[in-house]
Design a protein around this nucleic acid. Structure first.
Lengths: 257, 257
DNA sequence: CGATAAATTGAGTCTCCTCAACGCCAGTGG
DNA sequence: CCACTGGCGTTGAGGAGACTCAATTTATCG
C-alpha cells in the first residue's frame, strides 16, 4: 500500500486535530524515531510538559525563516518539510527533507538564528519544542541531553553523507541512492521501502541532488525503461532493488522486513 | 607575513609542550573562537577542570576513526585537521578542514560512533574534552550548554553551506569561495586574510571541493594568470580581492582589518 | 474550461573528467 | 656530489556527462 504522501498520523486523519490539541510524547507512535527514544517515563513526562501544542501548516507555509530571532526546534509529526538556504545572490540549495519523527531547526540552536528556511511540502503538523524550556529541561535530564546529542550527531552525519553524494557521485548514483535511502526511512516508519510517494516536486529534488530538472527527468525515464523503478508522477515503486543498489554504487542487500 | 602553516600556538613554538602540559582555557588566546566564548569565569574554570591535557599529533596521524567507541570532542589548539568519510565501496569525501579554535568530533556525540575520521594535516595539538565529563558539566552550566549549542549550530550551517557549494557552484566559484572563506577564518585568528599557506594537499582540496586534482590545478593556474591570486605550491596570496569575489559569485567587499 | 505551472523531451554545447605523460622537489643511498 | 626514487603537482588531448535553451505535453487550479 502506498501511503498517501507522508501523512503518517492516522489519528489525525480520523479526527482532524484542532490547532492546540495536546499530543503526548508518551503515546506518540513516532516516539522511537524522535527525541523520546530511550528516555525514562519521568523524562518523557518532563518533555511532554514543555512540548507545545501541535502546529498545523499548509503546503508551502514556512515553519521558520532563515534569520528568525529565537527559534524553537520542531519535531515533524505528520507531513513533510524541506529546508533550504539562499545565498545573497539568490542561489538556492535545498539542504534536507524531513519526515515524521525527524527534527527540524538544528541550525538554530543556542540563540543563533537558523541559516535555513523550513517549508511544508504538504499539509503537515509539528511538535514545537521551545528552546529556553528545552534547555532548562536539559539541565536536569541526562537522558534527554544524550538523546538530543544523538539527534544532532545523526543530522551532522546525514549532511556529511550528502556532501559525499554531491561531491563524488554521478547523477545516476545520486538519484538511486536517494530513492533507496528514502525507502529505508519509510520502512523505519512502518511503511514499504519500495512503494511510496514523493512529497517534493521535481524542482526541489533536482535542486537537492545538485542536478538540473531536465537531467532528473531523464534519469527517472532511464530508470523506468531499464526496469529499475516504476515512476508515475510522484509515485515510486522500486522494482529491481539489487539493480538500483548497483546504480547507486552501493552493495546493499535488502533485508526482509 | 605568512604564518608557517596553521601553527598559531606561538607559546608552543617557543617552549615545545610536553605531552601532558596543562593548558588553561582561561589563558588561551583562542578562547573567543572556541567553546569558552561568552562563558563566565566560573564556567571557564569548570571547563578547565575537565579538559584533558594537550595531545600532540604528527602529520597524517589520526585523532579518531569512524566507528570508534566513545569519542571525546576535540578543540584544535595548533595545526590543522581534515575529517573525511569513506563509503563501503571505498569512495572518500573530505568533509571539513579545522583550524585552531574549531571543534572536531561533533558527529560523535551522545555515545554515537563518529561517522568521520579526523587526521592531522601537519604537526598539531588538541584539547580533549571527554564526553561524559562534559555532559555532566552541561547539567550545571547554562552558559556552557548555550555555547556548545552555538558551536553545533555553526557546524551544521557550515555543512549546509558546503552543500550549496557542491550542489550549485561552478568549479571556479568553488575554489574562489574556498580561498576567500579560508582567508576570513585566518583573519579571525589574527592573521592576514590575503596571505596564507594551505596545509592540505591538492588531492585533499580537490576532493573536498568535489573536483578532480587536474581541474583544481588548472583553476589555480587560471586564477594565477588572471592576476587574482599568486599561487606558489601551498602559498596563497590574494591579489585582486574584488575579482576573486566576483569569481566566487559573491558580492563581498573586503573590510579593513 | 481555460490559464498557469510542472514535467518531459529534444538538440546542441560546454564544463569538467579521464587518461597519460611529464616536471619538480625532497629524501635516500651509493 | 649525484643519480635514483616516489610523492605531488602540472600540463595536454580527448571525450562524456550534465547543462542550457527551447518547444511540447501534462497536470493543477481557479
Amino acid at each position: 500500500m502506498i501511503p498517501d504522501s507522508y501523512m503518517l498520523d492516522k489519528q489525525a486523519q480520523i479526527q482532524p486535530t484542532t490547532q492546540g490539541k495536546k499530543v503526548e510524547c508518551t503515546s506518540c507512535g513516532l516516539a522511537n524515531l524522535c527525541i523520546p527514544h530511550g528516555l525514562t517515563t519521568e523524562e518523557l513526562n518532563n518533555l511532554d510538559s514543555i512540548v507545545k501544542n501541535k502546529k498545523k501548516l499548509d503546503r508551502d507555509e514556512a515553519l521558520f525563516h532563515a534569520g528568525d530571532k529565537i527559534t524553537p526546534i520542531y519535531a515533524v509529526r505528520s507531513g513533510s518539510f524541506k529546508t533550504s538556504i539562499t545565498s545573497k545572490e539568490g542561489a538556492e540549495q535545498i539542504t534536507g527533507f524531513y519526515l515524521p519523527g525527524e527534527i527540524v531547526g538544528l541550525d538554530g540552536l543556542g540563540g543563533i538564528a537558523p541559516s535555513s528556511t523550513a517549508i511544508a511540502l504538504e499539509t503537515s503538523s509539528v511538535c514545537e519544542i521551545p528552546s529556553l524550556e528545552f534547555d532548562k529541561l536539559c539541565a536536569h535530564n541526562h537522558g534527554l541531553r544524550t538523546s538530543f546529542m544523538q539527534v544532532v550527531s545523526r543530522e551532522i552525519a546525514r549532511e556529511q553523507q550528502m556532501m559525499m553524494t554531491l561531491g563524488q557521485m554521478s547523477a545516476d548514483a545520486r538519484l538511486a541512492h536517494f530513492l533507496l535511502t528514502l525507502g529505508l526511512r519509510f520502512k523505519e516508519r512502518g511503511y514499504s521501502d519500495v512503494e511510496y510517494n514523493l512529497s517534493m516536486s521535481r524542482h526541489d529534488l533536482a535542486n537537492y541532488l545538485g542536478l538540473a530538472v531536465e537531467t532528473l527527468s531523464r534519469l527517472f525515464k532511464k530508470f523506468q525503461s531499464s526496469g529499475l523503478v516504476d515512476v508515475k508522477r510522484r509515485s515510486i515503486i522500486i522494482i529491481d532493488y539489487e539493480a538500483l543498489c548497483k546504480a547507486a554504487n552501493t552493495n546493499c542487500t535488502r533485508k526482509a522486513s
